[in-house]
């Protein structure tokens, strides 16, 4: 079995199984634990509504913090949007998703894919540089760096494979798929679960504050 056969066969399959099982395990494992409703009378009758609104309103820092956080906010947006586009809008990825789900949609031209991947990687580097230069702010753990590497690898190998540079294409493609497999398997058990948690945690804070009448 060649490396590519291993990567796009058992490796990616196993990682997807871990990803799906892991996401459900973590989601239910935490959501089933939630406390019952707060029985006290809410100070704000629109508490629930405001709670849900927080999911969106917290997508940008409050004006007081804009200046201090502008760098990482912008970089994080650039990173998340370009990564998302690369994941769902380049043709090889669409082909993979189609083979799994039967769904398909038009893709972006490859040169735009390369540009987006480069932007994603550059913004990820910009973010780690800030983390490294502000240890006191971030209080990083080893896990943060491991996560950064696991996220950066598929971008790097994907760009190299896509642009046909580095090792032979089939090897780069295999490494790319393997790095994605690593990301999939790691995702549910790491901070990357914020892809799901952000909705619940924002809503939860919004609800709690609104219930107590805090202006949000």
């Amino acid at each position: 079995m060649s490396l590519l056969e291993f990567a796009r066969g058992p490796a990616i399959h196993a990682s997807l199984i871990i990803l799906v099982a892991g996401i459900f395990l973590r989601l239910l494992g935490v959501l089933v634990l939630t406390r019952g409703a707060d029985l006290s009378r809410p100070r704000d009758a629109f508490g629930n509504f405001k709670g849900y609104r927080t999911v969106f309103s917290r997508a940008w820092p409050s004006s007081e913090f804009t200046t201090t956080t502008i760098y990482q906010t912008v970089m994080a947006y650039v990173f998340h949007i370009s990564t998302l586009l690369v994941v769902v809008a380049i043709v090889p990825h669409i082909e993979f998703i189609t083979s799994l789900t039967g769904l398909s949609w038009p893709g972006l031209p490859n040169f735009i894919g390369v540009a987006l991947g480069t932007i994603a990687l550059a913004s990820l580097i910009a973010l780690i540089l800030r983390r490294l230069s502000n240890p006191a702010v971030y209080n990083s753990t080893l896990g943060d760096y491991v996560t950064w590497i696991i996220v950066a690898l598929p971008l790097l190998t994907g760009l190299m494979a896509f642009a046909h540079v580095g090792l032979r294409y089939e090897t780069m493609l295999a490494l790319h798929i393997l790095s994605a497999a690593l990301l999939f398997a790691y995702m549910p058990f790491s901070k990357l679960m914020h892809a799901f948690w952000f909705i619940f945690s924002r809503a939860q804070s919004g609800l709690a504050y609104a219930h107590k009448g805090v202006r949000i």
């Binding site: 796009r8 066969g9 990616i12 399959h13 799906v20 996401i23 082909e95 993979f96 799994l100």
Partner: peptide
């Protein structure tokens, strides 16, 4: 770019098990 592992049955089972 196609994955070579048949269909998504196991993924569904994994979702349920998880």
């Amino acid at each position: 770019a196609t994955g070579k592992f048949g269909d998504g049955t196991r993924l569904g089972a994994a979702a349920l098990a998880g």
